[in-house]
Design a protein around this nucleic acid. Sequence first.
DNA 1: TTTATATGTAAAGTATCCTTTACATCTTGA
DNA 2: TCAAGATGTAAAGGATACTTTACATATAAA
Lengths: 70, 70
Amino acid sequence: MNNRLKELRGTRGWSQQTLAENLDISRQSVIAIETGRYDPSLPLAFRIAELFACRIEDVFVSPSAGQVAG
Amino acid sequence: MNNRLKELRGTRGWSQQTLAENLDISRQSVIAIETGRYDPSLPLAFRIAELFACRIEDVFVSPSAGQVAG
DNA sequence: TTTATATGTAAAGTATCCTTTACATCTTGA
DNA sequence: TCAAGATGTAAAGGATACTTTACATATAAA
């Protein structure tokens, strides 16, 4: 699932380490999510959205989003 | 994490089995999520929100939602 | 009573998420 | 050159999500 985590982190000028501390997760988890190795759990997705004061749908993009028939 | 899955399912008049088939998961997963035994993965949370044509935040309620200081 | 539908618990196994540790590369600056 | 910060890969282990199967209870209908 695509996401804008790296972009959002950039707007704050945060390193991966700083973001990890703000989310109370490891730096490896930040890397894994940013590089698309895996998706966060739902509770973590909520913490991420809350941290950046936006909706989950504004951070993560469902594979089926925006699809049209055909 | 609290959720309104059972309530939303009720508005459609669907059994757990029918919901499971619509989400392409097992009935046990539906039960586990409805009864709060565990949270869905983020991709499944997206599928649930899409099925009911609403936002993830309209189905699942973050533990920290609506909290005020004190 | 028997049958069918709906809901729930339990347990065992697989898949995914997340952590810790270690190591590699690149950039910046003393 | 050397040190430090930022980003990335890899691997092993623990935690959580999800599946399958089996069994229990309740309700409704023949």
